[in-house]
């Protein structure tokens, strides 16, 4: 018997839907990239908290520069690395609003390290979503401060050599030590279970910001399958084997 599609698409049959705050713009992210999943979680959290009219996002320079094309809230596009300074002013001038930054590892942990540390140290009531994919995705796969030892990128084609390039920088461990942070956690989005945990973490970070508890940072250890030159599945496996060893998942601070 032929069944009409509209008979299947009924509210009672609905098991999954695109978040209400994600719009229909085609995403520019590579298939398999973690950015899109994290966008989805942020959109869901904002919707579930009912704060879309109060939320201002600060987009980075990096692959997520166009985050403002996908989540249907007001956005400010920052200069490379400066999002925490921008968020500082937005929140201080609008203390009742939800202000968050969304930043990659080059943005947050290289060019914007000073802005990151000092926003955290002042305990700005903002949430920082930190996408650590160990590479500069947007500019074509150059070395990031977070690139693992031995990992090959276009600017360390023979693998990161610590004698030449220094060590992978663990930002979460750094800001955990800073008194202004209230919540520092490291998550990932490579399995359904991890995605659920990451969403909880983002929600807690947002709740902390609204409650004025200080700075929250949610680091998401992520894949950049294009930059890593791996299939999406292989990239997830490689992340579990290598990235999690240097960047172990879990809460570093929750006060």
């Amino acid at each position: 018997m032929h069944m009409d599609i509209n008979e299947i698409i009924k509210p009672e049959n609905l098991v999954y839907t695109k978040p209400r705050l994600m719009n229909d713009n085609p995403m520019h992210y590579c298939p398999g990239c973690s950015h899109g999943v994290v966008h989805k979680l942020i959109a869901e959290v904002i919707d579930e908290m009912g704060i879309e009219e109060e939320t201002i996002g600060i987009a980075p320079v990096g692959c997520a520069v166009f985050a403002y094309n996908y989540i249907d809230i007001d956005w400010i596009e920052a200069a490379h690395g400066r999002a925490p300074a921008i968020a500082t002013a937005v929140k201080r001038l609008n203390p009742k609003k939800m202000v968050f930054t969304y930043q990659g590892d080059g943005d947050l942990a290289a060019i914007g390290t000073a802005e990151t540390i000092h926003a955290c140290n002042r305990g700005e009531n903002i949430a920082i979503i930190f996408i650590n994919n160990g590479i500069y995705g947007m500019t074509g796969g150059q070395m990031a401060p977070t690139t693992l030892e031995g990992m090959k990128t276009s600017t360390c084609p023979y693998g990161r050599n610590v004698a030449l390039n220094g060590y992978p920088l663990r930002i979460a461990e750094l800001v955990e030590r800073v008194d202004g942070t209230c919540y520092v956690t490291r998550q990932s989005v490579h399995t359904p279970a991890a995605i659920r945990k990451a969403k909880k973490a983002i929600r807690l970070a947002f709740e902390n910001s609204m409650a004025g508890k200080g700075t929250s940072m949610v680091e998401i250890v992520s894949t950049c399958n294009s930059g890593w030159k791996m299939s999406p599945v292989k990239a997830n496996q490689w992340m579990e084997e290598h990235m999690f060893a240097k960047y172990p998942l879990g809460d570093l601070k929750n006060v």
């Binding site: 400010i76 920052a78 300074a85 921008i86 968020a87 500082t88 609008n94 802005e115």
Partner: peptide, 26 residues
Amino acid sequence: MVVLQAESEVAAINMVYGGASCGKAV
């Protein structure tokens, strides 16, 4: 009025960028 000593002039001008983005006189 909010008054804040920033960590650098780079941060200060970006705070201005943030405030100005909200239509505030900064």
